[in-house]
Design a protein around this nucleic acid. Structure first.
Lengths: 113, 113
DNA sequence: TTAATTGATTACCTAAAGGTAACTGATTAC
DNA sequence: GTAATCAGTTACCTTTAGGTAATCAATTAA
């Protein structure tokens, strides 16, 4: 049985799941896609999300070039987070996950949400 | 800012990630797709996978109708795990994750695996 | 000077995922 | 009866993800 090729093909799958997996990452990305730019603004747009987790996730997303971070100096310091064009390439992936999940729920529970 | 609709659209995304996320689920599914049928066979096909985790994941996958489980009585008891036709609907999703991840690695590190 | 706001960081804790290893029950071959 | 094989289960431990709450630095308005 040939495993090596298929197993190494899973490294990219792992990478993707690391980037969009977890409890908050997609939520944060969508909030930013929707136009939320500032730290507090994003935080308040997602109920129960803590500053600690948000801070960490934003760093990860910046590293992965999904968002840009710009510090604007002014009265209270403001930071602007913006989605990159590149981040949009994730939309197809997320849509695929969404479609499969929606169909799956119908199959398993015989009803939708 | 309209959040409610987009946030509820994420429930299916969560469902899908619960089903294919984690360290072993996709590996196990692929092993079964490849033709491995028996518990020990699947276990041995995936280095470092323990019986405990395999046992749990197989149960989850059976609940989600991705595999069927049949007990064959014979000398050493044998169990047959088979992929369902339905499980194949995940291939498109997994391929999407794989493509995005492969392209992402090129973008971030400038090289492939 | 005090309070308030923004954008965080830090220390500490809990819960969930996963790992380790020993063990069970059934059966058969020796 | 002893060993081996298959298909698991159980108890226990470690690691990681995530939650809670206090704190900090900068700035401005009252």
């Amino acid at each position: 049985m040939e495993h090596k090729e298929c197993m190494s093909a899973l490294l990219p799958v792992r990478d993707t799941l690391d980037i969009i997996g977890g409890k908050w990452k997609i939520l944060i990305l969508i909030s930013i896609w929707e136009g939320n730019k500032h730290f507090r603004e994003i935080e308040r747009s997602i109920p129960k999300l803590s500053t600690k987790v948000l801070s960490k996730e934003l760093k990860d997303m910046e590293e992965n070039q999904l968002i840009t971070r710009t510090v604007l100096n002014g009265f209270p310091v403001r930071t602007e987070y913006r989605p990159t064009e590149y981040s949009k390439t994730l939309q197809k992936v997320i849509l695929e996950l969404q479609h499969w999940g929606a169909n799956h729920r119908k199959k398993i529970f015989g009803r939708e949400y």
